[in-house]
Design a protein around this nucleic acid. Sequence first.
DNA 1: AAGGCGTGCAACCGCATGTTT
DNA 2: CAAACATGCGGTTGCACGCCT
Length: 529
Amino acid sequence: MSHTRNEREGGILYKDQTESLLIDDGNSGVVLKKGPWTSAEDAILIDYVKKHGEGNWNAVQKHSGLFRCGKSCRLRWANHLRPNLKKGAFTREEEQLVVELHAKMGNKWARMAGYLPGRTDNEIKNYWNTRIKRCQRAGLPLYPPEVFLQALQESHSINAVNGGDEGPHGILQNNSYEIPDVIFDSLKASQNALPYVPELPDISTSSMLMKGLGSQYCSFLPPTIHCQKRLREATAFPPSYTGAVKNECPLFEQFQDDISEKAARSFGLSFPMETDPTTKNSLQFGVFPGSHTFSNGNFSASEPALEVMKLELPSLQYSETELGSWGTFSCPQPILDSVDAFIKSPPSTSRAESDSLSPHNSGLLDAVLQESKTLKSAKNHASDKSSNSATPKEPLSPLGHSATSHSSECISASGSSLDVQPPTETFTESHVKPPPADHVLTAEIENEAPIQLDGWCDTLLASNWLEQDYGYHKDQAIMTDSMATLLGNDVSSEYRNMAAGTSISNQAWALGSCAWNNMPAVCQMPELP
DNA sequence: AAGGCGTGCAACCGCATGTTT
DNA sequence: CAAACATGCGGTTGCACGCCT
């Protein structure tokens, strides 16, 4: 690098810009420049776009003398030079909208950008990746429970009611199977703070199992991008398939066939149908091609609780929005302070064994759990857990779909942040293209019903939630039943068979069962007919 | 004060899709 | 219809900066 960022921004070049990486474009003999853009290059590009408009980016180099490839020019313009770009940190409203959109769209950054005027896909992507890292470190769920439950609820209703007739553009389709990762992230994080953990004979093994659980049971379907890629690769859809799951991912049958295999692998079991020893050898505990760990690239569902977490709050920069906006972790400042104090001086208690066995026990979650008990008892006096009292929860659920949603304020005054045409950026340049029409979300988004959340936070955070209701002995069927609810009975039968036919450790099943059975009542869908 | 380290951002890369020839 | 070209998208990488020790 020939200059610092500030120097670049100030347009000051301390060294000749020709020191930047130069590449031959391969066909014209022109040497194209790579690396950071200079202000001079920016000026050239801006001037070019003013004269010729957007598009035909490859011509920029030819006509302007700018030694940049077309892609680079387009990116530079789109991300930095075009008018009306917002710079700086995301506002609270934007953050919330990003979370909400990601819960529905997955890693569709460009589409998401259509809902965030002035923000680029790259910006959103970077923000999200940053958020993921932060959440992973903190062991926090990516999605607020509101968002998760909404997606889960919608996906289930699609499956059960519509019988899989949802069109190919259903926003939630792909992601509805991603979202349970949130649960497992939380549970895994909580697991590390749970008193029973030290009783596990081998925490490393259980961690690996949790990796498998996290990446498998939470990502049964390929993540969005892979489903999409598979769709692209698919030449034809299966002529007949039932259920929304298959409909949502036409290659689901193929995937379904892989479920038991993958799950078995996630438990470290050999799979009798394995035919490719090369592939087999490449698989590790709970990690396999297509798992969320690697496939999604930017989100490792199995990582958070398993890494040595640096004990810090989600973000100082975003502390209010990331903690305060998330119902689960909407802790009063004193609590955060106590957590912070806890972090800074972790107690050397009798939990040494636990800590030693669970190196990822952050202490943060312990503190949160402790506080959650307090909050829980206090909350029980204030609200009926069986009802959804939107008003009192409003401060805790800024992402809820109430009329006062911040994101609604940000995007639209119509009540739903997603029921509007993505804002067309009002560029001063007439050449600027509007966002694509497919930014319009489908009707199911508009019809989002209020989601009952009471109980979820408590369940998730209550430190005794495992002790009081669930143990290792929980029947394996619980897991499969839960999976049946989510995926459909045809899928779960695979799991039932697998569970019956294998010697999967009680640990693994208990952990999975705990995860699924501690979902709030609203999440425990009735058995499908 | 200096070095290490983590974080955030800008830019690149590969691939897929759409359009033109 | 196919090849070439253009564009868009998502993932990844490299670097500057700031914080911490």
